[in-house]
Every structure is written in C-alpha cells, then in structure tokens.
C-alpha cells in the first residue's frame, strides 16, 4: 500500500513537513517493500490560494491510499474525504520512524481538519 508523506528532504531519513499544502515535495512510500518515489509539490508551494487543494489532488493522483501529516486544512481534508483517503495524524518525526508506527497500526485517522481555513 502506498502512503504519502509531506517532506522537505528526499529519502526515508527526511522529516515530516508540518505544512501539508506548502511542503516542498511528497515522499510516496510503498509499505509492502519500503521503496519510495518523490513527488515535487511544484508551484503549490507559492500558490496564492488553494495550495492544500492542489496538493491533495497531487497525492491522490499518485495512487497513495493514505496521507500521513501533522496538520490538514479544511479544503484539503474535504478532497481527501471525498476521495476516500484517510489522513493519518502524526507528530513531526523522520519518515522511517513514522513508517514503523504506521506498520504497527499506531497512526490514527483524523476525523476532521485541524487548521482553520484561510484564504491565503
């Protein structure tokens, strides 16, 4: 199963980026064999509005079946919800650590967005 992590780094030692919509890139990890690919978040880093929405679409299109993130705004959350993809809440830690937690079933799905909406 593929899982997406917003990151600033570029491999499993990278640390989770707390800003989902404006993360530099996403690490898409296949939990079955620990391989991963990198997905640049491109222009969304500077998008004037709707960065979270764009990033959510990118993650969904990558084939990921879950997102691991410390935060998720209301609009991105809605996109994930409609797409049926859980947002698993996690503390800021290395991806390797979080992957272990995921496999141990220690990450819980968020039931709603935790960031206030913003127009910016």
């Amino acid at each position: 199963m593929k899982i997406a992590f917003p990151v600033a780094g570029s491999d499993l030692s990278a640390v989770l980026d707390a800003r989902f919509g404006r993360a530099q890139r996403f690490l898409i990890v296949d939990s079955d064999n620990d391989t991963f690919e990198l997905l640049e978040n491109g222009s969304n880093v500077d998008a004037s509005q709707g960065a979270g929405i764009q990033s959510a679409q990118l993650v969904i299109a990558s084939g990921a079946k879950a997102l691991v993130s410390s935060h998720c705004g209301p609009k991105a959350f809605k996109v994930f919800q409609v797409a049926g993809i859980p947002v698993l809440q996690a503390p800021v830690a290395s991806i390797a650590q979080l992957l272990a937690k995921f496999k141990a079933g220690e990450l819980e799905a968020m039931t709603g967005p935790d960031n206030a909406g913003h127009m910016g």
């Binding site: 959510a56 679409q57 969904i60």
Partner: peptide, 24 residues
C-alpha cells in the same frame, strides 16, 4: 477545468469525482 481554474476552486478527488469550492 481543474487546470484552467487559476483560483484553485476545483479539485479532482479520485473516485469521488470533481469538487467545487464556492468560497474560492
């Protein structure tokens, strides 16, 4: 339509189809 909208008001939510964000 998603590519066209410069305000990011539209989103494709996988199997959930197209979403419109009226507030954007």
């Amino acid at each position: 339509c998603v590519d066209f909208c410069q305000y990011n008001a539209l989103a494709l939510a996988g199997s959930g189809g197209l979403l419109v964000f009226p507030e954007l």
